[in-house]
């Protein structure tokens, strides 16, 4: 029995770092000297104002704040009106991985780029409506890899945690005694060794 807190991104979270690496379309509002190499399609040394590029979220966050923002970001296309409508219509049928692997995490950051739209509402709506499907996949005993593929990273994390717990309950209900097991890491290590020895 060990303490397992729910996912709360912190400075060291791998998922948060990867989510903030996603690219965001933005336009430069001032000239930026010497950083022409940020634009792979141009050969100039300087970046001219008006250039439209896709930059990682962490850079966009720093450059778009302050009294004189360097870039003006815009919502990535999966958070725009059309895609939001698709989610509103039937959230469970959507392959969220195709939209973006870090859909919910990125959404929470990206929502500030367009305060008038209801990105936050869409996120909650999508999550709550897909929950039933998530619960069904966790409870079912058959393993269908496409179900897992269609989830985004947050759902996958919930899935992994709950599936383990579910399996334990299932084993306990079916079998009379559960044996002490080899530690999971030891098992994986042995499998890997056997694989490389062949």
């Amino acid at each position: 029995m060990s303490l397992q807190p729910s996912y709360l991104p912190n400075y060291f979270s791998i998922d948060d770092i990867l989510a903030s690496q996603e690219r965001i379309p933005c336009t430069f509002s001032v000239n930026v000297q010497k950083l022409g190499n940020l634009n792979p399609s141009s050969e100039e040394t300087d970046l001219k104002a008006g250039t439209a590029l896709e930059l990682p979220l962490w850079l966009v966050q720093d450059l778009s704040t302050g009294r004189q923002p360097v870039v003006i970001p815009e919502l990535p296309k999966v958070y725009k009106e059309g895609y939001r409508e698709i989610l509103k219509a039937d959230a469970s049928a959507v392959d969220l991985h195709k939209f973006n692997l870090y859909y919910f995490e990125l959404g929470s950051y990206v929502r500030v780029f367009d305060r008038k739209s209801d990105v936050a509402d869409t996120l909650i709506h999508a999550f709550t409506n897909r929950f039933r499907q998530l619960m069904d996949v966790i409870d079912s005993t058959e393993h269908n890899p496409t179900d897992f593929q269609r989830m985004d990273s947050l759902e996958r994390r919930l899935f992994k945690e709950s599936k383990e717990s579910r399996m334990k309950l299932h084993t306990w209900l079916e079998h009379s005694t559960t044996p002490i097991e080899t530690a999971a890491m030891v098992l994986n290590h042995k499998k890997r060794k056997r694989g490389t020895d062949l």
Binding site: Y7, L8, I124, L134
Partner: peptide, 18 residues
């Protein structure tokens, strides 16, 4: 557990965004 409390936490995080 842990599905329900963790899911509720994520909803709470998203609610705060609203």
């Amino acid at each position: 557990r842990p599905l329900l409390p963790h899911a509720l936490d994520q909803i709470h995080r998203m609610k705060k965004l609203q």
